[in-house]
Nucleic acid binder design. Structure first.
Lengths: 172, 172
DNA sequence: CAAGATTGAGAACTCAATCTTC
DNA sequence: GAAGATTGAGTTCTCAATCTTG
């Protein structure tokens, strides 16, 4: 209802207190540093962005190694536009192929090629080791569980759509 | 010592087990989604990137609102190159000014201008509210403390340099 | 030569606009 | 008209190369 608003229409915000700052500062630092550390490893060892990796990993576990672009975008935690650009790059390099859906022409499928599957198989081990080294080895299993639960709480308020995916141990 | 290595020189990696996956998947999803949510708010409301905001916020609390580029880069969690590009953009818009250090010509100072200080004052409230809404309101104070402690553990193994900063409540 | 900082090229991301199909 | 997807313009980020000073 905004009676007596200040000239700039801002109410005094609820600033963070000292305890909140003590937690938020390291948390936000980790938020900036960790994704870029994962990205760096993938770029260096596999010439792949973290987002491109997640998209390909998502396809590798989908039935027929194929998903609609819109589904894949949710799975990889990105916008349709971002995914479209990323898939174009992967397609140029022969790892993904686009094809129309026969029953619904609005839908475009992205399919992982054989070369793409080989690429993910070759890339996953070093990436998983990096995740272990940078995160899992730093904390106990119980702490990891806590971290997962907290993340789910936060994701819920972000209005997060679906769960992501991850390269599980594969049958040989 | 790598005897009997496979042709590709890869040892079978320690894949994530189910419990690890259950935690890692939401955690990594949050890792991707949260920074971009913060970025979106700042871009929309203040035409400022999260990184640019952190740099300006860092300067706003420094003595004389001035820091060496190298110090600011650490504070804002970015590379020297990234900071240099970002400061160029902030400089073009009149919020930051560069100046040489008189006593050591290798060092460049970045100083927040008066306009830049006004900009941060105007921008901080909505950003802090967003942080509250997206993160702090989702979890209890105790959980927040836990999250901060876990983040510090993880940052330590990342070889993280210094702590970041945050806009504390200001004297009027 | 190492530290501090910048630059330019190339790649990636965002946003708004667009196109097609249901 | 809305869903699914793409495009292009503009901006930002990364990486390697460079320049200057201690």
């Amino acid at each position: 209802v905004d009676h007596n608003a200040t000239p700039t229409a801002e109410h005094e915000p609820r600033w963070l207190d000292d305890a909140e700052l003590d937690a938020w500062i390291p948390f936000s630092a980790m938020l900036m540093a960790l994704p870029s550390a994962l990205d760096t490893q993938l770029k260096r060892d596999a010439d792949l962005s973290l987002f491109g990796y997640m998209a390909m990993a998502g396809l590798s576990e989908a039935p027929g190694r194929r998903l609609a672009m819109s589904e894949l975008a949710v799975l990889a935690n990105g916008s349709p536009s971002r995914l479209s650009h990323a898939v174009s790059s992967l397609e140029r390099r022969g790892w993904v192929r686009r094809s129309p859906c026969p029953s619904n022409a609005r839908i475009t499928y992205a399919t992982l090629t054989d070369a793409g599957y080989e690429k993910i198989l070759a890339t996953a081990p070093a990436h998983v080791e990096t995740v272990r080294r940078l995160v899992l080895d730093s904390i106990t299993p119980h702490q990891l569980h806590t971290l997962g639960a907290l993340s789910e709480q936060i994701l819920a308020t972000l209005g997060h759509p679906g769960a992501a995916l991850w390269p599980r141990k594969r049958a040989e």
